[in-house]
């Protein structure tokens, strides 16, 4: 199944961080409607790859980075609302900061209910547990209301059952998704395509139906 039109395209891309090469010669294309899982050991370059892809369509992507970037002085409500800033005028946003709009409050409350943090909307993120913070970050991404989701280990701090449930919800809400994920099982179960990175190179690029766990586990073994 070759996508008609690729949304993301990298050809021979390399990337260095402080003169330390992170990605080498990456060539790949991701089409609209694909759900892609990025797997690979830590340090393989997954986050860097995500960030390169993000730059190709910054305005169309709901991003959920590993360092969630929550603002500790704002309430959970505001942190989720931040996902929608670009939909409203600056003036509207500033009023919201002083006194949240009723309609927005309802939308965010609905979202928070799905995420299981509806009782935390008044709290600030620094009072929440790691798992709850991750759900706030997901909330912000969902409130972006875009068709593309990009996540970097978005459910790593949640317990397996909840994580799986939320991952499923997020994937349902977005037509296209590129998600770095540490669990090969989740990758196989919920994604169409799996790209494996190792030492900054593409180690494998499979349709989910073509591979099984035993193949994916080789990605994590020492070369």
């Amino acid at each position: 199944m070759t996508p008609v039109e690729s949304m993301f395209q990298l050809t021979g891309a390399s990337f260095s961080h402080d003169n330390e090469p992170v990605l080498h010669d990456i060539t790949l294309a991701i089409g609209e409607g694909e759900k892609v899982a990025l797997v690979g050991p830590s340090g393989a370059g997954k986050s860097t790859l995500l960030s390169l892809l993000w730059r190709q369509h910054p305005d169309a992507i709901a991003l959920c980075p590993q360092d969630s970037g929550l603002v500790d002085l704002l309430s959970t409500y505001q942190n989720i609302y931040m996902g929608g800033l670009s939909r409203f005028s600056t003036f509207y946003n500033l009023i919201n900061l002083i006194r949240p709009w009723a309609a927005r409050r309802e939308e965010v409350a609905d979202l928070a209910r799905t995420l299981g943090i509806e009782d935390k909307l008044q709290n600030s993120p620094d009072q929440l547990s790691g798992g709850q913070r991750q759900r706030v970050a997901l909330g912000r991404a969902l409130y972006r209301q875009q068709s593309v989701f990009m996540g970097d280990e978005p459910v790593s701090s949640l317990d397996p059952e909840q994580g799986e449930q939320l991952l499923k919800h997020v994937l349902d809400q977005h037509m296209t998704a590129v998600v770095a994920i540490h669990s090969p099982e989740l990758a196989l179960r919920y994604f169409d395509r799996i790209i494996a990175l190792k030492n900054g190179r593409v180690y494998g690029d499979w349709q989910a139906t073509e591979v099984d766990l035993s193949v994916l586990e080789t990605v994590y073994q020492d070369a």
Partner: peptide, 21 residues
């Protein structure tokens, strides 16, 4: 360097992100 790539822009960047931080 530590800010998210998709940080808000304009006044919203100041009021929603930098000022509270």
């Amino acid at each position: 360097a530590q800010q998210r790539q998709d940080s808000p822009v304009g006044l919203a960047r100041y009021f929603y992100q930098d000022l509270p931080q």
